[in-house]
Design a protein around this nucleic acid. Sequence first.
DNA 1: GGTTATTCTTGACACACATCAAGGAGAATT
DNA 2: AATTCTCCTTGATGTGTGTCAAGAATAACC
Lengths: 257, 257
Amino acid sequence: MSARGPLNFPYITPIPSCAFYDSVCEIGDYMPNHKIDVSEILANLPLFRQLGQDDIALLVQGSREIRPQKGEFIFQKGDPSHGFYAVVHGQIKLAFPSVQGAEKVVAIIGPGQSFGEAMMFMEKSYPVFAQALTDSLLLHISKQALFTAIEHDNSFARKMLAGLSIRLHGLIHDVEAYSLRSGAQRLVGYLLQNENGQNGQMEFDLPASKQIIASRLNLTPETFSRILHQLTEAGLIQVDGRRITIPDIEALRQYDH
Amino acid sequence: MSARGPLNFPYITPIPSCAFYDSVCEIGDYMPNHKIDVSEILANLPLFRQLGQDDIALLVQGSREIRPQKGEFIFQKGDPSHGFYAVVHGQIKLAFPSVQGAEKVVAIIGPGQSFGEAMMFMEKSYPVFAQALTDSLLLHISKQALFTAIEHDNSFARKMLAGLSIRLHGLIHDVEAYSLRSGAQRLVGYLLQNENGQNGQMEFDLPASKQIIASRLNLTPETFSRILHQLTEAGLIQVDGRRITIPDIEALRQYDH
DNA sequence: GGTTATTCTTGACACACATCAAGGAGAATT
DNA sequence: AATTCTCCTTGATGTGTGTCAAGAATAACC
């Protein structure tokens, strides 16, 4: 799903910087109505990478572009599913609505990732809503197109099974984290998820605003801020806006409180 | 997955009373070494109900019986996956290990349900352990047998996709419950999940010990007991051992605290 | 460049739930 | 029937994290 090492919290692209999608992004920005190469984009999605040309063509036929602006809703909780979505560029959050504006972010979807597949195989409606965190470009692939693709290529079904399994695994990890880990432990786990294998130190930007990350980790912005402060005081991290510096990865990993 | 109405917390069979499996259960009890009809059992699993005779035969070849005693472990967290398990009779719990005997129950699997499918499609090892809550009879179906069945019948792949989607949905529901519902609300939601559509009152037994249910709902046994007491005092439920009586379903549903 | 929104931080306080500890209630065993 | 488990309940107390409220910092906008 990602070349960035083990993702403890899947669905998050901490550093959305895939060269391919960045270039597409510019095309989208400068020529909003330019006919982008949908088939090339689809063929490069992790989910479709092993598909043949003809299957891709089928999917292209069943797909349409969606260009939500920042804050725009893709679908609401309870909406019926007619297909699934792939993020070409931008960022989408999936979340539960809650009382008075409060909400619980389940996932942050970045370029090259997709969402909404699982609901196609059920009669149920979306359990979450999807909202653009930034101006974005999505592809919507219709249920029908995908189902015919599955029938044509049964190795593709296995690919989809693998994809859903990874999500399931990620959700199980979340349940574990929420159940038997403290807020600080969840945050540390989240920070270390970006680990590139590089020893010693690392440095990166948070992929979204701190309140969004906080919600993703099941924390209030206040608690999130305080934990960040504690870790900074302990010398385990440095924070500059969204930029996080970890001087000693191993030391942070040892942190258990 | 179940004919018992909408399952908010899937993986749980509150009243394991399927006539077919009960009869098998007796066979198992009286003739522990009797050659049970594996193909009939497999063919009646929700997951395999639409499979042809030949595909069932393939699965039977790749399956073996497992008879864990109460407390016995089926697999440990970290074990590699070689297939998946179907519960013929008995009860299996999936849980995360935790410090000093404490553990977090993720699911309680009853007759006719299966577990461990998702891990077959990934390279990862089990994120939870599986332990028998009672003496049980399981079928283990090998990865290879299942994969050939998928290749033979591509409608079967869709069936599996649907199965995994339901699990995913269930986990999302759990995440929602843990994130933005109080303990009492989770418990009420759990009790109402057994709702048979019957109006007014209902009555049923908890499917496992209270401490297991408590863990499933992310509560300590103490808190679980206290909430049960509160609900009883409020006249919303009656408790007699594992037997729960709900005099007014609608009243309980209204409960929000 | 200054003004207005957002976003983030920090403090004081409240509360849900966990923890620790001890006592009951059954069921199983002797 | 008595004993030993295991499971459950109840009380006293602690604490992690949320809530409310008010600044500070940053970004967005005119």
